[in-house]
Simulated assay, not measured.
Amino acid sequence: MTALIAGRNTPAKAGDVQVGLVAAAVNIFAGAMLVRNASGHILPAVTGTDLIGVGRAEVAVDNSDGAAGDATATFKNGRFRYANSAGADEITIADIGQPCFAVDDQTVAKTDDTAARSAAGIVEDVDDLGVWVIFNEALTRAAL
């Protein structure tokens, strides 16, 4: 392509709502923390490897009897609060700006548990109710 010589109507994706194909045999609850697997499918966050946090499920999706790609999930990236892990994996304000790791679809931890957990997102804040996590795939991948 050559450089522009006039204005261009460049397509854009407005907002923070996204849609992705769901992994096989999963049930997603509204509000769940979601991850993308190595093949690009969306599933509820679990302790596992080769996953990356993508955001919060906007609606429930039951693909428990389906194959990968049989259903779609609507999710938002952005900032959401999830439960904090405990003990040595509890996230504190000293961890703000650092990656956090998925324990399950509603809990994040400070460490990857010796490479057993995948990154959920970036810690934005910590309060008495949990951890505020920034979900942005590119930002999370860059932070790793």
Rank of each mutant, 00 (worst) to 15 (best):
T114Q: 07
G20I: 03
A67M: 09
S85E: 02
E90K: 09
R8M: 08
D50I: 10
V35A: 13
L51E: 05
D112V: 14
P11I: 00
T107E: 08
C100I: 02
G55P: 00
A6E: 11
W132G: 06
T74S: 07
K76V: 07
I5V: 13
R81M: 08
V17L: 10
V26I: 15
R36S: 15
I42L: 07
E124G: 10
T107I: 12
T114I: 09
V131E: 06
A71L: 14
S118Y: 01
D112P: 05
V17I: 12
N27F: 04
V131I: 11
N77P: 07
R81D: 05
V126A: 08
N84G: 08
G53Q: 05
D128C: 05
G69M: 04
F29A: 14
V59L: 10
R141N: 13
D16I: 04
A83S: 08
T74G: 00
V26W: 00
A138N: 12
D113Y: 05
T114Y: 02
V123Q: 00
D104M: 11
C100S: 09
D89N: 15
Q106L: 12
T72L: 14
S85V: 00
N136T: 14
V133H: 01
D70T: 13
T2Q: 13
A6N: 12
T111E: 06
R117C: 11
N27V: 12
A38P: 07
P11Y: 02
A60V: 09
A142V: 11
V61L: 05
V22I: 06
R8L: 06
V19R: 11
N77W: 07
G69S: 02
K110R: 14
I5C: 09
A142I: 03
A12K: 15
F75N: 03
P99M: 06
G87E: 09
R141L: 15
R79Y: 04
A24M: 11
A86N: 10
G121R: 01
N136V: 06
A94R: 08
A102F: 06
F135K: 04
N9A: 15
L129S: 13
V103D: 08
L129N: 14
L34K: 03
E58K: 11
A71F: 07
A88V: 15
F135T: 04
D50M: 10
Q18L: 13
V133Y: 02
N37K: 11
K110G: 05
Q98A: 14
L4S: 11
Y82K: 10
A83N: 13
D112G: 06
N63G: 04
V108Q: 05
M33T: 13
F75E: 03
A24F: 01
A94I: 12
V17H: 05
R79H: 09
G7W: 02
V61M: 04
I93G: 11
N37D: 15
A68K: 05
A6Q: 13
K110M: 09
G40D: 08
I28F: 02
